[in-house]
Design a protein around this nucleic acid. Structure first.
Lengths: 218, 218
DNA sequence: AGTCCTACTGAGCACCTGCTCAGCAAGTGG
DNA sequence: CCACTTGCTGAGCAGGTGCTCAGTAGGACT
């Protein structure tokens, strides 16, 4: 049997190929996690061989962290965009004058996340997988949780109570609602977040159903 | 090199061996998830060979669902015990007169979960891994989420608003806080749950204080 | 037209995967 | 004391794993 028509031997510039690999890897990791990821599958999805893949990213671990850093860059940028804030969003939120409240901030996160299930699933799966310290993404997600909690606490409205507690509450809500939404596509993520955050005392000021003392809405 | 002293050829009654395997598998799955689980490792941990393992559970999939059913039985029993309710807890909660409010119910769950990190991690990892429909535990966790939401909604206090929304909120809080606690052992799961649930309007009736009187470091 | 860089291939390594099958030996009832 | 059940082993299968290395070919530059 003659060999199948040899691969077209397409040769892409490194940046382009890396991009393509990152996209393919993102999809596969979001389905199988890191332990379940096969480099062969990633290579196949890109139409190259496994050593071809490893030429760009040296190892499976490197590929994973490249995916995470890539996503983080994209997501932070998109978020800064939605909020109309400058490029170095985290810097600003951690040290400067934020200019946004916690609720609008998380509203923006939720609005964006609701448009990209696959990415949210990627984070959810890796977050759980990496709970154990020898997972290659362990440090990444541990640092991430600390950062997010610190930022949330910084943005928390005083009326809602102890900032650390509010941050914990909001982050838990975010992660938990996303899990429910990922499992059941019928769930309305944006609506669920709006409703839940509205039920937290002092968090979403205008939504106090059981609070009449607002004589005139002026 | 002479072969190592041959295995002692210990032969356990089936029930006992199954129990041992379930325990070992639980620990390994909680660390690596299902895709990362190796039957060889489970067999090694029990001092038997892989075919010996497969003699009791026919396949990797079967082992997984055996682990899940085993845990579910243990946990439901322990919960019924804590609440002083009869054996058929879910039956009672779904159809009969509950006799427990949502808050004491979840308090009991949290108190118990706080004593068994490994088990909680098992559930968290598998819950995320099984989001994709072809995971062997997908059906299990989908059914589980539906059941829990239904029960929570049924137990929700009227003062907290729409029961379905309250159920969603509480479940999200539970899952999210557990993730934070699993990642950072410094987190006080029980305390975080008490605090967060106290901040939800109408959920924990006595805790309507806007602020704890005075933390007053003592 | 020749040269160099580099994206990429083919072959191969050592090892692991879940699973099957025939057979052995530890315990049990006759 | 023997037959029988059954928990378990040893060998082996087909396929997959991440990764290495030498070599090749496409594209850009001189």
């Amino acid at each position: 049997m003659p060999p199948p028509p040899p691969r077209s031997r397409v040769r892409l510039p490194a940046a382009e190929r890396r991009q393509q690999v990152l996209t393919a890897a993102t999809a596969l990791i979001s389905e199988r996690g890191y332990w379940g990821l096969s480099l062969q599958d990633v290579a196949d999805a890109c139409g190259i061989t496994m050593p071809g893949l490893l030429h760009h990213f040296g190892s499976k671990d490197n590929l994973l962290i490249a995916v995470l850093e890539h996503r983080d860059r994209l997501d932070v940028d998109a978020l800064a965009d939605r909020l109309g804030l400058g490029g170095d969003l985290f810097e600003l939120l951690e040290r400067g004058e934020p200019g946004v409240g916690l609720v609008p901030f998380v509203d923006a996160i939720v609005d964006r996340n609701a448009t990209q299930r696959e990415i949210v699933r990627l984070y959810s799966v890796l977050q759980a997988e990496s709970l154990v310290p020898d997972h290659p993404a362990h440090a990444f997600f541990t640092a991430r949780q600390e950062t997010v909690l610190r930022i949330f606490a910084r943005l928390a409205p005083a009326a809602a109570g102890e900032p650390g507690d509010v941050a914990r509450h909001v982050l838990a809500l975010l992660d938990g609602l996303q899990l429910q939404w990922l499992r059941d596509p019928g769930v309305d993520l944006v609506g669920a977040w709006r409703t839940a955050s509205g039920a937290v005392a002092g968090l979403r000021p205008t939504a106090r159903t059981r609070r009449p003392p607002r004589p005139d809405g002026g």
